[in-house]
Amino acid sequence: MGEIDSINEEEIIMLQAQAQISKYMFAFVDSMAIKCAVELRIADIIHSYNGQKITLSQIATNIHSSSSPHMDYLFRIMRLLVRRKIFTASTSQDGDTLYGLTPLSRWLLHDSELSVAPMFLFQTNPILMAPWHYFSNCIKEGGIPFKKAHGCEIFEMASKDDELNNNLNNGMNSMTKCIMREVIKVYKDGINSITSLVDVGGGIGGAMFEIVKAYPHIKGINFDLPHVVLRAQKFEGVDHVEGDMFEAIPPVDAVFLKVKMLVLLHLTMFD
């Protein structure tokens, strides 16, 4: 006790500060653990048991793998995600640990109409993570982090990389579904009075479809780059038009712009 008592207030403050810095140092662990759960579809596995809580063995049995899952690694990941309130853990009468869903993990369901799983996988993709390592370089020299990391901008890379293009489009579409219904509920004035609307940079058309579905009198145009429109779904009441918004956009009554903040961060920061 003598040594503890001898620690002065300044030393306590410095020890607390060191602990906080260590927390920031390993902050990436949480996002990587959640990414692991999304890739393994752990939330979907638990959800498939119709609300019942399940054991670690049941989770492992349902993981698609060419070999048996490593139970110790799986246990450690689940223990961390329980602490982060992604999943729940309780003890059965037999002494087994049972895992369940929380409001957080319900947003990670792949098959749910409202899900952030595609966006989470996109944002934690190594291609999207690399630009974050170039911030100090950008401060020294200027420029765009993504371009410094990969030698081109994200939409240029997506036009040549089908997997990245699909991940980007699916990620944006998942976020669109999450926000557009609320936007339409709240913002009604102005929409009723227009007959034609273009979503500039509309991706695969999800946002425009939600608008046209709520307001069928509107002629909707989903406008984006050629390689994006190529992957667009067919929606009733929505025309997909390819082009470059910096050159021209289709003539309509009104223009809809949905700010893609998470992607624009990589494109415009320090530009």
Results as ranks from 00 to 15, higher is better:
residue 253 D to R: 07
residue 78 M to Y: 04
residue 257 L to N: 03
residue 62 N to V: 03
residue 212 V to Y: 01
residue 184 I to R: 02
residue 21 I to R: 15
residue 184 I to N: 01
residue 6 S to P: 00
residue 194 I to W: 02
residue 210 E to S: 02
residue 173 N to F: 08
residue 256 F to H: 03
residue 147 K to S: 10
residue 21 I to F: 15
residue 5 D to T: 08
residue 19 A to H: 10
residue 236 E to Q: 13
residue 185 K to Y: 01
residue 219 K to F: 11
residue 4 I to N: 12
residue 27 A to F: 08
residue 30 D to W: 00
residue 127 I to M: 10
residue 63 I to N: 09
residue 106 R to V: 11
residue 212 V to E: 05
residue 216 P to G: 07
residue 71 M to N: 13
residue 153 E to F: 08
residue 260 K to L: 15
residue 84 R to N: 08
residue 82 V to C: 07
residue 160 K to P: 02
residue 86 I to R: 03
residue 180 M to T: 15
residue 44 D to C: 05
residue 167 N to R: 13
residue 269 M to H: 10
residue 249 I to W: 00
residue 259 V to M: 12
residue 192 N to V: 00
residue 135 F to Q: 14
residue 160 K to V: 08
residue 222 N to Y: 01
residue 241 V to M: 01
residue 176 T to Q: 03
residue 242 E to S: 13
residue 217 H to N: 09
residue 173 N to E: 12
residue 246 F to Y: 13
residue 59 I to P: 04
residue 88 T to Y: 02
residue 256 F to D: 02
residue 151 G to K: 10
residue 30 D to P: 05
residue 54 I to M: 12
residue 32 M to W: 13
residue 39 E to W: 03
residue 212 V to F: 05
residue 86 I to Y: 03
residue 142 G to K: 14
residue 42 I to V: 15
residue 171 G to R: 01
residue 87 F to G: 03
residue 39 E to M: 09
residue 139 I to N: 03
residue 214 A to T: 10
residue 183 V to H: 10
residue 45 I to V: 14
residue 83 R to Q: 14
residue 201 G to K: 01
residue 215 Y to F: 15
residue 75 F to C: 15
residue 205 G to M: 04
residue 22 S to C: 10
residue 139 I to F: 08
residue 251 P to R: 07
residue 221 I to F: 13
residue 57 S to P: 02
residue 255 V to T: 06
residue 196 S to Q: 08
residue 158 A to E: 06
residue 155 F to T: 05
residue 102 T to H: 15
residue 63 I to E: 12
residue 245 M to S: 10
residue 15 L to K: 12
residue 259 V to Y: 09
residue 148 K to Y: 10
residue 225 L to N: 03
residue 119 M to K: 05
residue 241 V to F: 02
residue 215 Y to L: 04
residue 149 A to F: 07
residue 188 K to H: 03
residue 4 I to L: 15
residue 51 G to R: 02
residue 83 R to Y: 08
residue 106 R to G: 00
residue 69 P to W: 05
residue 245 M to T: 06
residue 78 M to T: 03
residue 148 K to N: 11
residue 119 M to H: 03
residue 205 G to P: 02
residue 160 K to R: 14
residue 89 A to E: 15
residue 257 L to P: 06
residue 268 T to H: 11
residue 248 A to Q: 04
residue 229 V to D: 02
residue 150 H to G: 11
residue 186 V to M: 07
residue 227 H to L: 15
residue 54 I to H: 05
residue 262 L to V: 04
residue 181 R to L: 04
residue 155 F to H: 01
